[in-house]
Each structure stands twice: as C-alpha cells, then as structure tokens.
Amino acid sequence: VLHDLRQRFPEIPEGVVSQCMLQNNNNLEACCRALSQES
C-alpha cells in the first residue's frame, strides 16, 4: 500500500503517507482521499 501511495502522491513526504496509513488502518481508498486533500 505504501509503495502504491508513494507513486500516486510523489510530492507528499513518506512520513506523512505512513502516518496516514496508520490513521486509516492501511485502507488504500481512505488514504487516497486523505492524501488528495493534503496535496
């Protein structure tokens, strides 16, 4: 999931992506929604 998200959101730091995964229990859809608001 992390690799997938890193490719979709290259401009977001890995730490932020990891934190997002923890908050969303590694749910790819939820992470994508959260990160798209972030970027």
Rank of each mutant, 00 (worst) to 15 (best):
V1Q: 15
V1T: 11
V1R: 08
V1L: 15
V1N: 15
L2G: 04
L2S: 08
L2I: 11
L2N: 11
L2T: 09
L2V: 05
L2P: 08
L2Q: 08
L2R: 06
H3N: 10
H3T: 12
H3A: 14
H3E: 15
H3Q: 15
H3W: 09
H3Y: 06
H3G: 11
H3K: 14
H3I: 11
H3R: 14
D4K: 14
D4E: 15
D4T: 13
D4Q: 15
D4P: 01
D4S: 10
D4V: 14
D4F: 14
D4G: 03
L5W: 01
L5E: 07
L5A: 01
L5C: 15
L5M: 05
L5D: 09
L5H: 06
L5S: 01
L5K: 05
L5I: 15
R6P: 01
R6W: 02
R6T: 06
R6Q: 09
R6V: 09
R6L: 13
Q7T: 11
Q7C: 03
Q7E: 13
Q7D: 11
Q7G: 06
Q7V: 10
Q7F: 04
Q7R: 14
Q7I: 11
R8G: 00
R8L: 09
R8H: 01
R8V: 00
R8M: 13
R8Q: 03
R8P: 00
F9K: 05
F9C: 03
F9V: 01
F9S: 04
F9G: 01
F9Q: 02
F9T: 02
P10A: 00
P10K: 00
P10C: 00
P10V: 00
P10D: 03
P10W: 00
P10G: 02
P10M: 02
P10S: 04
E11F: 05
E11S: 09
E11M: 08
E11G: 10
E11Q: 10
E11D: 14
E11K: 05
I12S: 01
I12V: 12
I12K: 04
I12C: 06
I12A: 05
I12Q: 06
I12E: 04
I12T: 08
P13T: 02
P13E: 09
P13K: 05
P13Q: 04
P13D: 08
P13H: 03
P13W: 02
P13Y: 00
E14T: 05
E14S: 06
E14Q: 08
E14K: 01
E14A: 10
E14L: 10
G15W: 13
G15L: 10
G15R: 13
G15A: 14
G15K: 14
G15T: 15
G15P: 12
G15Y: 14
V16E: 11
V16G: 03
V16H: 07
V16N: 05
V16M: 11
V16D: 08
V16I: 02
V16R: 13
V16A: 07
V16L: 08
V16W: 03
V16T: 10
V17T: 00
V17W: 01
V17N: 06
V17I: 15
V17R: 01
V17D: 04
V17Y: 02
V17S: 02
V17L: 13
V17Q: 02
S18V: 15
S18H: 15
S18C: 07
S18K: 15
S18R: 15
S18Y: 09
S18W: 12
S18T: 14
S18G: 06
S18M: 15
S18D: 06
S18P: 00
Q19H: 09
Q19E: 14
Q19I: 15
Q19K: 14
Q19T: 11
Q19S: 12
Q19C: 10
Q19N: 12
Q19P: 05
Q19G: 07
C20F: 11
C20A: 15
C20T: 13
C20G: 08
C20W: 07
C20V: 15
C20I: 14
C20M: 13
C20K: 13
C20L: 11
C20Q: 09
M21W: 03
M21H: 01
M21V: 07
M21F: 05
M21L: 12
M21R: 01
M21K: 07
M21P: 03
M21D: 03
M21C: 07
M21S: 03
L22S: 12
L22Y: 09
L22H: 13
L22A: 15
L22E: 14
L22F: 09
L22W: 08
L22P: 01
L22K: 15
Q23S: 09
Q23H: 15
Q23R: 11
Q23N: 11
Q23T: 08
Q23D: 15
Q23V: 09
Q23I: 03
N24A: 02
N24P: 00
N24L: 03
N24S: 01
N24E: 07
N24D: 01
N24V: 01
N25S: 07
N25C: 05
N25M: 05
N25Q: 07
N25K: 12
N25A: 06
N25R: 06
N25E: 08
N25T: 02
N26V: 02
N26K: 02
N26F: 14
N26C: 07
N26Q: 06
N26H: 07
N26E: 05
N26D: 06
N26S: 08
N26G: 10
N26M: 07
N27V: 02
N27Q: 06
N27E: 09
N27H: 04
N27S: 05
N27A: 04
N27C: 01
L28A: 05
L28M: 08
L28G: 04
L28S: 04
L28E: 05
L28V: 08
L28D: 01
A30N: 09
A30R: 07
A30H: 08
A30T: 04
A30I: 01
A30S: 06
A30W: 02
A30V: 05
A30M: 09
A30P: 03
C31K: 05
C31A: 05
C31I: 03
C31Q: 02
C31V: 05
C31Y: 01
C31E: 06
C31D: 14
C31T: 08
C32I: 15
C32Q: 07
C32S: 08
C32F: 04
C32M: 11
C32P: 03
C32H: 09
C32N: 13
R33W: 08
R33F: 08
R33G: 06
R33M: 08
R33D: 08
R33V: 10
R33S: 09
R33K: 12
R33L: 09
A34H: 10
A34M: 09
A34D: 09
A34R: 05
A34L: 06
A34V: 10
A34P: 01
A34G: 03
L35A: 02
L35M: 01
L35C: 04
L35R: 02
L35G: 03
L35S: 02
L35F: 03
S36W: 04
S36Q: 13
S36V: 07
S36E: 14
S36T: 10
S36K: 12
S36H: 07
Q37C: 10
Q37G: 12
Q37I: 10
Q37V: 10
Q37A: 13
Q37N: 14
Q37H: 10
Q37F: 06
E38M: 15
E38Y: 14
E38C: 13
E38P: 12
E38G: 11
E38V: 11
E38R: 14
S39K: 13
S39T: 15
S39E: 11
S39P: 12
S39L: 12
S39A: 08
